[in-house]
């Protein structure tokens, strides 16, 4: 990645983190305040398009920033996002595999989000009387599906830009 690319992604991350921390509750759904995670969408996108190392490192930095801003459980989102970046980077495409990866990008995004949030909520709900199955259904799946909606939008958006080029 070139410096200009780093700068571009840093700016997008900063905007997404501010939106995620300050405004995302406006579109929270259900009694459990389920919100989409815009930041993880970008981490996964970087992982798929730029490879495992940029995916992991951007995930770690973005997660740590989110942890600091949320003011609780520092390191937990850093861990989850790093794992998401690592898995997404595993599916990172070369020119020859680009079309097949693009076809399954939604599935990859869903997999990364489910794994990342499984880790997050598994640690977060340690010592709580509710079962992990319940946590998985109420929080992990719902958050992943809601996030996927924004992942689909990002994919469509990037396809449109690519087609115009």
């Amino acid at each position: 990645m070139y410096f200009s690319e780093y700068l571009k992604f840093a700016i997008i991350f900063a905007v997404l983190i501010i939106v995620q921390v300050s405004f995302i509750w406006l579109i929270a759904i259900s009694n459990y305040n389920i919100t989409p995670d815009l930041v993880i969408v970008l981490v996964i996108y970087i992982g798929i398009t730029r490879g495992q190392i940029p995916g992991m490192i951007s995930g770690f930095i973005a997660g740590l920033t989110m942890d600091l801003l949320n003011g609780s459980f520092i390191g937990l989102l850093a861990l989850s996002y790093s794992v998401a970046g690592f898995i997404a980077g595993y599916f990172s495409y070369t020119d020859s595999s680009k079309s097949s990866v693009k076809r399954s990008i939604i599935g990859i995004m869903f997999l990364c989000t489910v794994v990342a949030y499984s880790i997050f909520f598994w640690i977060y709900y340690q010592g709580v009387s509710i079962s992990y199955g319940e946590v998985f259904m109420k929080f992990v799946l719902t958050t992943s599906i809601y996030t996927l909606v924004f992942g689909v939008l990002l994919t469509l958006f990037s396809n449109v830009i690519e087609t115009k080029k």
């Binding site: 495992q52 992991m56 997660g63 850093a78 794992v83």
Partner: peptide, 26 residues
């Protein structure tokens, strides 16, 4: 195996941070 080394490093860093919550540096 650089990807796996970096991944391990980030996981260890995250775990250290998780387990050292509420210290003065944080």
């Amino acid at each position: 195996i650089k990807e796996y080394l970096i991944f391990s490093l980030l996981i260890v860093l995250s775990l250290i941070l998780i387990f050292s919550n509420d210290n003065s540096q944080v």
